[in-house]
Design a protein around this nucleic acid. Structure first.
Lengths: 188, 188
DNA sequence: AGAAGACTAGACTGATCGGTCTAGTGATGA
DNA sequence: TCATCACTAGACCGATCAGTCTAGTCTTCT
């Protein structure tokens, strides 16, 4: 259970962390290698296209994490607003753990890079996945499909903007204020 | 009137465009120099700290542009929602002009770079300036100061998230949908 | 005319970039 | 025992990076 993470996993995790902090172009391959404790040869064995492959893997991994947080937040939620609130608080906590702002949790990381088309397509798929996840719960909680999709999209838009502002301020309060901003003061 | 832009201005404009497209770390000094048609010596004459100075100048310039669009949008607006709608449509148009998505209009550009603290402070000031601009009009249009500030902040959060999604989709429709998302269907 | 300072010009530097390549090492199966 | 193959290891490559430095060209003031 506590076995060593595989070389490949260590690479993806180091890359995710560093890309989040310094961006794609701002992170050197050598930094990733050093942080993962892996030589260059291994990187190109597991990711033949090198840095770009690694970035895509990091993005996929991150999208999966976000979807997982959505699941956790909405699984037992009595209504949409409760789910959103739980999600925002969870992410605010994560924001604070990732020492308050070097990080861009979803996909700031996906816009850089020489291979822009490939990255953009990957990022789009990731957003779609996340919005679909949220939309699913909106339907489960009683909304018709169209409304649900819209609701999920607006939620993710607000969250994305909120994270940006939180980051620039190094302060997660904005995230916690999102439910009120989107849906007005709590009624209970 | 149609006189040549000064060397300094050409540098800032070229830098703004390139940073927007490829990010801070993704843009080489040589590209900026080539696009501006300026030799290296001139850059370091006008911006002694080089690339970092240039990035700050580019951010200031961009913030000024955004504030100007806010002024244009709200100056003659009969109410808050009209102002927001005009702003979103203007920015959607801008988005389409900047060939649909390489661009990050406000400050995605401010998170990279070795000199993170300096950049972040600059970005924070720019956001503050923009929110203050919007807040001013919210008050002019009859809201009490606290409400106005909140309204402006929520508006900018939504816009920021909306631009991100528009970018990843290469489609400005999200921006035009923002007023409805934030304030419900148009009442008139 | 001549000195001074603002500005242009680009060759040059050392560091670092992403990526390639050859040489191993260690486990598996015949 | 030996061949195979997945994987590790890191020296090495040309390109490009941001930044420095010296030289030269204007403009302006005296």
């Amino acid at each position: 259970m506590t076995e060593e993470a595989s070389t490949k996993d260590r690479l993806v995790q180091a890359a995710t962390r560093l890309f989040r902090q310094r961006g794609y172009d701002g992170t050197g391959l050598s930094e990733i290698l050093a942080e993962a404790g892996v030589p260059k040869g291994s990187l190109y064995h597991h990711f033949p296209e090198g840095k770009a492959d690694l970035a895509c893997a990091a993005a996929d991994w991150t999208a999966g994490e976000i979807v997982r947080v959505i699941d956790d937040s909405f699984h037992a939620a009595p209504d949409w607003r409760h789910g959103v609130t739980t999600f925002c608080y969870k992410m605010a906590k994560l924001f604070d753990i990732l020492n308050s702002a070097d990080a861009c949790p979803i996909f700031g990381l996906m816009f850089d890079g020489p291979d822009q088309a490939r990255f953009r397509i990957h990022a789009e798929a990731a957003f779609t996945r996340i919005i679909a996840g949220a939309s699913h719960y909106a339907q489960t909680l009683g909304m018709p499909p169209d409304t649900a999709h819209d609701m999920a999209e607006t939620f993710i838009i607000g969250f994305q903007g909120g994270w940006t502002l939180a980051r620039v301020r190094r302060n997660s309060d904005v995230l916690r204020s999102l439910p009120t901003r989107l849906y007005g003061p709590a009624s209970a």
